[in-house]
Design a protein around this nucleic acid. Structure first.
Ligand SMILES: [Zn+2]
Ligand SMILES: [Zn+2]
Ligand SMILES: [Zn+2]
Ligand SMILES: [Zn+2]
Lengths: 133, 133
DNA sequence: TCGCTAATGAGAACCATTACCAATAAGAAT
DNA sequence: ATTCTTATTGGTAATGGTTCTCATTAGCGA
């Protein structure tokens, strides 16, 4: 049950949740849930490809429902290194994904890898933070 | 002085070093150096763009000399999620960088961001680990 | 009911990173 | 030379996200 509650929480939240945030949300429905269970199930869900784990540089992991490279909501991230704001963008996703597929094919042949996924992030300063140096 | 020793260490090492590994290397030349100084200078060098910081999923940050998107050694990473092996690849780099530049222009206009850098990683199973499930 | 396995929760332990603080070095100004 | 400032450093303690340990519970077929 906790597993479905975690998935459901990730499904509703339109943000990138930390383990603790997920824990707090699920806790409202299952007051007895433990933080350990959250971590355990997240790791398990990541293994199945249903969930993705990200590091946005704020000292804790962030989790998000995955849709695979073809999913309608597949996106990449734009991160402000000053305030931590994260923007999901889908612009150029098609071109990116196309190049990624090509690159994956090449890499997996050349290095004999079974490629499972990719990570693309841009970082910089958002409009609010650009001014402040 | 420690700062130059850190840069020099990163320059010599052809691998992705952790803070502790850098500390140990510099320690041979400056036996009195403190781990704090290593962290401090790394953060400082990252700020200037001379050094890049990566998370390969092994619980500690990894550092590498940066060469910018145009540098001769500019590369991206292919990571084995089972044994942690990291491969620097330069294949398709030109096409990737070209698309990245285009994407950067689009994103920075649309979201009013000043983009400072990008991160691309592929993850999967290396040849040694493919067999073991 | 009896095993057997998967899943769970509470708390302790881990460990990379950060915070804190006093010491030192270098320079400029007096 | 003597102050005053500023940048840099190192040792140690603290922080805090994540993982580990271990006892408990739930499900389920025999
Ligand atoms: Zn910002
Ligand atoms: Zn996202
Ligand atoms: Zn491997
Ligand atoms: Zn590299």
């Amino acid at each position: 049950m906790p597993r479905e509650a975690i998935l459901s929480t990730l499904g509703k939240a339109s943000k990138h949740l930390s383990a603790e945030e997920i824990y707090l949300a699920v806790h409202k429905i299952y007051p007895n849930i433990g933080l350990t269970t959250v971590y355990r199930n997240l790791e398990l869900l990541i293994g199945t490809g249903l969930v993705n784990k990200f590091d946005f540089g704020d000292g804790r992991a962030r989790y998000e429902l995955s849709e695979g490279p073809m999913g309608a909501r597949h996106h990449h991230h734009l991160i402000c290194t000053n305030c931590g704001r994260v923007i999901d963008y889908t612009d150029f996703i098609n071109e990116e994904v196309e190049l990624l597929k090509k690159t994956e094919r090449g890499l997996s042949k050349k290095y004999d890898f079974r490629i499972a996924g990719h990570l693309i992030q841009f970082h910089g300063l958002c409009n609010r933070c650009k001014g402040k140096k």
